[in-house]
Design a binder for these strands. Sequence first.
DNA 1: TAGCCATATGCAACAGTGTGCATATGGCTA
DNA 2: TAGCCATATGCACACTGTTGCATATGGCTA
Lengths: 197, 197
Amino acid sequence: MSLRYVILTALSEQDLTGYQITKEFDLVLGNLWSASHQQVYRELAKLADEGLASFEMEAQTGKPDRKIYSLTTAGKDDLSRWIEEPVLFAPTRNALLVKLYAGGNRDTLLEHVTCFKANCRAALAEYQAIAKRYYPERLEDMEEWKKRAYLTLRYGVTQREAQVAWAEEAEQVIGDLGQSDDTALDGDCGPDQAEAN
Amino acid sequence: MSLRYVILTALSEQDLTGYQITKEFDLVLGNLWSASHQQVYRELAKLADEGLASFEMEAQTGKPDRKIYSLTTAGKDDLSRWIEEPVLFAPTRNALLVKLYAGGNRDTLLEHVTCFKANCRAALAEYQAIAKRYYPERLEDMEEWKKRAYLTLRYGVTQREAQVAWAEEAEQVIGDLGQSDDTALDGDCGPDQAEAN
DNA sequence: TAGCCATATGCAACAGTGTGCATATGGCTA
DNA sequence: TAGCCATATGCACACTGTTGCATATGGCTA
């Protein structure tokens, strides 16, 4: 149910097209939520249908026509109401941890963890690039909306840093394990392990 | 697609009923994944249907009959294959960050963050209880499967600790904000800056 | 005895997300 | 000119997850 409010939030800043909102998910918004363009268009249609947003067609030269969406009063009210609601915390669902728990070949697990670490580092680099570009000033000098946005970025940074640290700890521990030790699986340490996928 | 493999993992340790698997999600497994009993039963039925697991009815005295599920060879193979596959990382979806980004009343945001912090602390306390009960020995003295399980718990601990630290930082920053400052909602204060991007 | 709880299993409907496919404009390049 | 890319929008179906409801055994307690 949150995607709709992410979109309402984006629209509360400025009028946007579905295409632009989708792009936002690759930038600042991506740190909070993510959605495909199909999801975005579908949700926008629903929002317009329910009167929370409205749109105007805009003809362009050299590019296809587009629909520029803006919040209605009802949309603003609904967003405000939602913000006041208690936050629903999503349960953990972590495939990497499942694989680690399940067992399997040591080198495979190491690869998974190393890949995870690389992902986290890449995310960190992106966050730092965003910080440099959008939040170059000191916290005290930021406008209030910017302080709040910066906090969401800080969340991503601190989480990723903790993940990298954990990954390094995990690499150590897994590195010290024997070659193969599935929980109750094939258990052979035979020559092969077909690289799936 | 992962729920099925979480269940296969649980079954790879020992034969279990749907009821027991559901209980597991409240304990150690809860740190990796979560699912309702309806989901568990549905998935078990599918696994049996596809020949990845099989079950035997067991009559009990004083309690209802139950189905004890066990992995088939095909099930073990499928689990092994899945473990080898690259991990699919789930995109971020964080309602708290959305609300923080959107704005709203300062005290509301503070409440949300404080509630989040309390949740994290509660989770930490649970993790510590589990650590004390299930992993009292030193890491070096653990069996290999236990080292891996311990790592998954460590992940939870390090993440939660980072979240608590962030929450305290956030409380500071939000505490210094003015009373009300929605992005473009009711409480406008002059010419709203709608920062592009 | 009535109601609650733990044990034990499940169906049905719906909401939310993901994936594949489709369509159209027009610029740039091989 | 053919193909690719960015822009721009969307449908249909499948899968995953949530919610409400249903059923049954038997112990414990008010």
